[in-house]
Amino acid sequence: MRHGRPEPVAHGGDLDRARARFPNARLPWIDLSTGINPVPYPLPELAPELWTRLPMRSDERRLKEAAARRYGAASPDAVVCAPGTQALIQVLPRLVASSRVAVLGPTYGEHAAAWRQAGHDVMDVADADAARGAHVVVVVNPNNPTGRIVPPDTLREVAVRLDAAGGLLVVDEAFADVAPQSASVVPDLPPSTVVLRSLGKMYGLAGVRLGFAIAQGDMAQRIREAMGPWAVSGPALAIGAAALADDAWLNASRAALDLAAKRLDGSLEANGLTVLGGTSLFRLASHPEAARVAEALGRAGLLVREFSYAPTWLRFGLPGSEAEWKRLERALEAACYAERTPF
């Protein structure tokens, strides 16, 4: 705690901190510390007026229709657009009276932090059974960083139980774009459930800051009111509508990511790391000297994600170009060879 406030949650993508930590690192930096598609959706040409006028309801409607179709929501009215999923993570705890919250972990740390900051009693649990007795249950599905998928039937059972007690199920599907379609609960949305989806991960457009909440009737309206008018910029609305409507790009990108993940697994295993899981956007691996491997990679200008709660874990995103792949493969070999050679 600092001055009575919780410490900020550590995240990937912090190149400013990496540059300060490794001032003599090889340039340019290759950021492998996030789970963002390194080959992003090509930005469409935008009408100049999108930058100079307030977003229109018709612009938002087009995006909601594209999102409902893409994610399988029953209606565009079930979709709430937001300036990134993180904004929704901050808002949801303010819509629920102080209660006991169970977060299936280890997982994305902002969920527990947001509920705690809003005054809720938060507990970390290992599975859905351990969440019994909680008024709110939060599940990241597929999980970040492990890639664990809780079956939709299990989530529906949890949702029905929570609904009977006036509770809430929150399912963060930020990485569901690369999971089997059957893994999402959106097409058969359970009662008292809010599903979060992200454009930035799969489409490689994290800087656009666009995310969605999908919920039934009253809850969708409450989230929409909490976000306020013009929550999403006009350019973001147009980019999101174009991206979510492009099925050909999505299918081709999924196939490319599958191949890239297999290549990354091979490189990690060839250098003595054990692949624990993940998704096709990131891989989680372990090494007994993970901190020293991350240090060596950092000096080589490659940023990977470390975990204070799991000191043998490292998370690797995907390189974007063949030159980046070669740099990673050479740096991994050098880092892991150094682990086997006394200094």
Rank of each mutant, 00 (worst) to 15 (best):
A213E: 02
V232W: 00
P235H: 03
L46G: 12
L284H: 06
E110R: 12
V170L: 11
P187K: 13
Q181L: 15
F316H: 06
D247M: 08
G35S: 09
N141Q: 03
A335S: 13
Q216H: 13
G84I: 09
L250V: 15
G234M: 12
H135L: 12
G109P: 01
A74Y: 07
R116K: 13
S308F: 13
P190G: 03
G211C: 10
G200I: 04
L54H: 08
A78Y: 13
A18T: 07
A206D: 14
A261D: 04
V293Q: 00
V79G: 05
V79Y: 03
E225W: 10
W230Q: 14
A285L: 01
A241G: 07
L32Q: 11
P23R: 10
P76S: 07
P190A: 07
A97D: 14
P23L: 01
M1G: 15
L104C: 01
V122L: 00
I239A: 07
L189N: 04
P38H: 03
G13R: 00
A296S: 13
G317E: 02
W313Q: 12
S192R: 12
R132H: 10
A18L: 09
Q117D: 12
D127I: 02
G35W: 02
S182N: 04
P288I: 13
V178H: 10
A183K: 09
K64D: 07
R70S: 07
A236R: 01
A112D: 01
N143M: 08
P152D: 01
D218G: 04
D31E: 02
L284N: 04
I223C: 06
E173G: 10
G105C: 01
S286N: 05
V158P: 07
P83N: 03
A215G: 06
F22S: 05
A159G: 08
A20W: 09
P8I: 12
G240A: 08
A118C: 01
G166E: 06
Q90H: 15
G119M: 09
R283T: 11
C336R: 08
D246K: 05
Y71G: 05
A159Y: 05
P151G: 05
A183L: 08
R17E: 15
T154H: 03
V160H: 09
V140P: 00
P42V: 07
A67Q: 03
E45T: 12
A102E: 00
